[in-house]
Structure formats: structure tokens, C-alpha cells
Computed example of a mutant assay.
Amino acid sequence: MDIKDILAQRQGTHGEFADNADIMQTLKDAVRARPGWDKLDATKREALDMILNKVGRIVTGNPEEPDHWHDIAGYATLARDRVKTASTITGEDAKSGAEAMAELRRRAGI
């Protein structure tokens, strides 16, 4: 398969490149302009960039392409796996997921 065939195939699933570039850069500019962007480490920034790339493909290409959605889940998982827990930040002993959820519910009055 030559490069023209590959590009034609990708256009069917990913959409037109210029449309992708427009929406992806618009989304990235909006996210990067927020104060929280500067609080993110490189892994979370890259995960968000890649997720926004996939969002661009969804809205300009084929939204029924399962790989787009699978990739978003993958990048979100990579970022989630690198999230600093409250125990890491405060130095407290690690809490189980159930204990952490119970604490969040208690604080929220739920």
C-alpha cells in the first residue's frame, strides 16, 4: 500500500487533515489557556493533547471508529495511573479506594 492509499484510508476514519488541524489546535489552545494547564506534569499534558487529537478525529472523521474511543480511554488511563494520590501529597499512609471514596462522601455530606 503506498502513501496515497494510506492517506485516503485515514481520511475516511480521521477526516480531512486541515479540518483536524483546525479543531485540534483550537481545542489545545483553549485548554492551554486555563490556569490548571501549568499545574500539569508532562505526562498529563501529553495525555490531554492526545485525547484532544482523538476528539478532533471523532468530530471531523468517523465517530463510529472504535479506535478513537479506545485510544481516548488508553490515554486517560495512562494519565490516571500517574495521578498523585492524597497520601503521596500529604505523606499519609495510602488509603484503599473504598476508604478514599468514603472520605470524599463524608466531606461532601453524602
Score class of each variant (00 low, 15 high):
1 M>Q: 09
1 M>C: 08
1 M>W: 04
2 D>V: 01
4 K>R: 07
4 K>H: 12
4 K>M: 01
5 D>I: 08
5 D>P: 04
7 L>G: 01
9 Q>N: 07
10 R>A: 02
11 Q>A: 12
11 Q>I: 04
11 Q>S: 12
12 G>S: 08
12 G>M: 07
13 T>K: 09
13 T>V: 15
13 T>L: 12
16 E>Y: 02
17 F>S: 00
18 A>M: 03
18 A>R: 04
18 A>S: 13
19 D>E: 15
20 N>L: 12
20 N>V: 03
20 N>T: 00
21 A>F: 11
21 A>L: 05
21 A>Q: 09
23 I>S: 04
24 M>N: 11
25 Q>H: 12
28 K>E: 11
29 D>E: 15
30 A>M: 14
30 A>D: 05
31 V>I: 15
32 R>V: 07
33 A>Q: 15
33 A>I: 11
34 R>K: 14
36 G>P: 08
36 G>I: 09
36 G>L: 11
36 G>T: 05
37 W>M: 15
38 D>H: 15
39 K>Q: 15
41 D>E: 14
42 A>Q: 03
42 A>C: 00
44 K>G: 09
44 K>L: 05
45 R>A: 06
46 E>G: 07
47 A>T: 12
48 L>A: 13
48 L>D: 10
49 D>Y: 01
49 D>Q: 03
50 M>F: 07
50 M>K: 09
50 M>P: 10
51 I>W: 04
51 I>V: 15
51 I>L: 11
52 L>V: 06
52 L>I: 00
52 L>C: 00
53 N>Q: 12
53 N>D: 15
53 N>A: 10
53 N>C: 10
54 K>D: 13
54 K>S: 12
56 G>V: 01
57 R>H: 06
57 R>W: 09
57 R>F: 06
58 I>Y: 05
58 I>V: 12
58 I>K: 14
58 I>F: 09
59 V>Y: 08
59 V>W: 02
60 T>N: 08
61 G>H: 10
62 N>I: 14
63 P>A: 13
64 E>N: 10
66 P>C: 06
66 P>D: 05
67 D>L: 08
68 H>V: 06
68 H>N: 15
71 D>A: 03
73 A>R: 14
74 G>E: 11
74 G>D: 10
74 G>A: 11
75 Y>G: 00
76 A>T: 09
76 A>E: 15
77 T>W: 04
78 L>N: 03
78 L>S: 02
78 L>V: 01
78 L>M: 11
79 A>I: 11
79 A>K: 02
81 D>M: 12
82 R>D: 07
83 V>E: 14
83 V>K: 07
86 A>F: 06
86 A>S: 02
86 A>T: 02
86 A>G: 03
86 A>N: 10
88 T>N: 08
88 T>I: 14
88 T>H: 09
89 I>G: 07
89 I>D: 06
89 I>H: 13
90 T>K: 11
91 G>W: 00
92 E>V: 12
92 E>Y: 13
93 D>N: 05
95 K>T: 07
96 S>E: 08
97 G>C: 04
97 G>Q: 03
98 A>T: 03
98 A>K: 14
98 A>N: 08
99 E>H: 02
99 E>I: 00
101 M>Q: 05
102 A>Q: 06
103 E>F: 01
106 R>L: 02
106 R>W: 00
107 R>A: 10
107 R>H: 07
107 R>D: 13
109 G>F: 11
110 I>T: 07
